[in-house]
Nucleic acid binder design. Structure first.
Lengths: 221, 221, 221, 221
DNA sequence: TATGAATGAGTATTCATTCAT
DNA sequence: AATGAATGAATACTCATTCAT
């Protein structure tokens, strides 16, 4: 009896639900269009006007959903980081063997980069300034998510499978290598086909991890 | 607050300062100014008008020496490649020991990147499309210069000091690693100070070469 | 750098803060917020959207209380005129001596201007067009309130303490002088500090009234 | 013989002369159009686009002659100050009698304001911030021109015709009065017709000067 | 009563480029 | 060889206002 009974009330409720959903839809639609545009035009040729055009709304409308251009870009990056961070964590959680963990993290990183080239570019190459500015309600900047990597390296050293050394330096080395490959491919897709890159991942991880191993050979075994 | 200088006036001012000394080689003067501007403003905030202003010539004049903006950028990149290629070759020529050679090449690459961040960025990150378009009167695109790297890897494998394997894949691995570090630093100078990067070079090369070695340990010895 | 707050979010925030307390008199709340905003941003940087944001209502809501922007501004001015007129009348009523009356009116005028710079500016400098358009249900435009001044001048002449002459011209002279000082101070606060202005009031009134006196000296005595 | 003889040379010379002149013409044309527009639309509704439209050039062209909107406005004000300053000085130079001088200056001030309402408004009411920022190549800000007024007051006091007192305060009083009348008329032309204002000038100056006189009566005689 | 969604018109400014000279 | 003049297209952003609900 306390449920909304009148038809009018039910209609109103449905309407407001649809509203919310549509609103989210438009916000998401803007972000999707922005993603497409970034893919096609690159970051420098990316304008709010074109985004608006693409979704069939006036340019002004975008400002109803995003404070300004930067906020739209930030949202794109943020969304990507959510996925990225999740994938890294899943990879890290997939095993307790430090070496396996490093390899899994490396794979996850690679895969994210290859499957989300536009966003990877945004996150690490074009707007890396956002890496260091935390979201309004959060404490840590996004870059802090990299702790999964340093943790794995630390564990490897403590377990005695990696050569003793500076955790930060080792992590940086590992990051450099994977970032290097991903970004080379993104910047110069003509150079190496995606399939070649995907095929190189294991070799490269072998080399990287091999270079850090206490005892050579175990990485490849 | 008010600095009532028309662009025309600013040009005129730059004019009287620079004109005489550089008249003979205006083309080079343009490129130099462009380089400075890139350094100060970055690639996205780089405009022909400002270049012209800086050298004290009219914007139109630039078109007498370069077909359009792209051609000027291409020339900058080209000039940088001349230096870059030369430095790599010198490094390669400094020794016949393949391992030493790889290390030397790696160092040369790093140094170029750190000392010419603006140009490195242009060459490998922002306008890498130019890597594959040869100069009008030449056959090979610039990317071909990387033969020094593949040669060294090849020699290492043949000499039995590197593990047998695909030369291209090994070279790509090596390149990824050095590019990764350089480009990380360029994109995120907040992350790692230049001095830290310079200090990391040897470690990183050790790991990379160590990962490729037939017998572990010899890289560091 | 990044403050990812959509306008909608900002509105919602303001909303929860203010809503309750002001709900009953939204019209007044709008006007108060508008006044604050005028003070902070000046007339040119004064927008309905910001007013709405400030009170935590949607911009549309303002249109329920005011036909358009102009009507809101008109209301502000009108409210100010109520205070202004009342203060002038009180001053006029404070004494029956015409000279004293003129002096009191002058003081009241000055004080209003200095204490309500934003409104004074609106009333007499930026939107003086409103001075001559009466409120919908009234006959006389606001400017008619100045009758207190002309009355005082008239009384002074009739009492023989002011030189005989045209009442309108004398009134205009007096008004010019006080308006001149107030508006100079409002337009160029750098020129004369508020304290200097406040200190000059008496001197200036002396001169003005002295210039109108039948017998010199009595104004200062 | 050393004169340019060839027809070509003469043509070229004429051409370059015409060029310069045309350039100045366009600059002046922009300023004239801006003045008109200000008169019609007021300062707040004054846009570069409309100025451009009015002279039949693209909006971009204005930027060839003025760095930005502010510089155009500054130029307008500056030009007006040249005329204004000159007229004040001429008035001051027209007599050596301090009282006459004050009256002449007052008249000149009034006349300038009435004949150049748009510019007066700009100078003293809308962009009075410019009063305090000197031109790039000059030391004193425009406001310094008011020295003619303080000089006259000073002379009057020293000659014993004005009551002893603070020169700055007296000058401010005088300025307030004339500014008051001019700005009242500019803000509310409906209030007093131009002819009435012109007719009031003498009365007002009489009162002002009368209020400052040592011995009453002499101002009017 | 209140609002969310949307927009068209407008702003200043910058840029690469062209053309006649 | 060099330039002055000019422009069209673009950009981010803001605002007052409307309409359906």
């Amino acid at each position: 009896m306390i449920e909304p009974v009148t038809r009018a009330e039910r209609v109103r409720k449905g309407s407001s639900q649809r509203r919310v959903q549509e609103k989210e839809n438009l916000q998401q639609a803007i972000m999707d269009a922005a993603g497409e545009l970034l893919l096609e035009q690159g970051y420098s040729g990316f304008s709010l006007r074109q985004v608006a055009e693409r979704i069939g709304y006036s340019a002004t409308t975008i400002y109803l959903y995003f404070k300004d251009k930067d906020e739209l870009v930030f949202s794109l990056i943020d969304e990507a980081w959510d996925r990225f961070g999740r994938e890294l964590e899943q990879a890290a959680a997939s095993t307790t063997n430090p070496i396996e963990q490093l390899r899994a993290i490396g794979h996850a990183y690679f895969n994210f980069g290859l499957n989300n080239a536009v966003y990877y570019q945004l996150m690490f190459m074009q707007r890396s300034d956002f890496l260091f500015c935390p979201k309004p309600d959060e404490e840590l900047p996004r870059i802090a998510s990299f702790v999964v990597l340093t943790n794995a390296v630390q564990a490897g050293i403590e377990a005695g499978v990696l050569k003793p050394g500076d955790v930060q330096a080792y992590s940086l080395t590992a990051w450099s290598l994977v970032h290097g490959l991903v970004s080379l491919w993104i910047s110069m897709p003509q150079l190496i086909s995606e399939s070649v890159v995907r095929g190189s991942i294991d070799t490269i991880l072998d080399v990287a991890i091999g270079g850090l191993l206490q005892q050579q050979g175990s990485a490849i075994s």
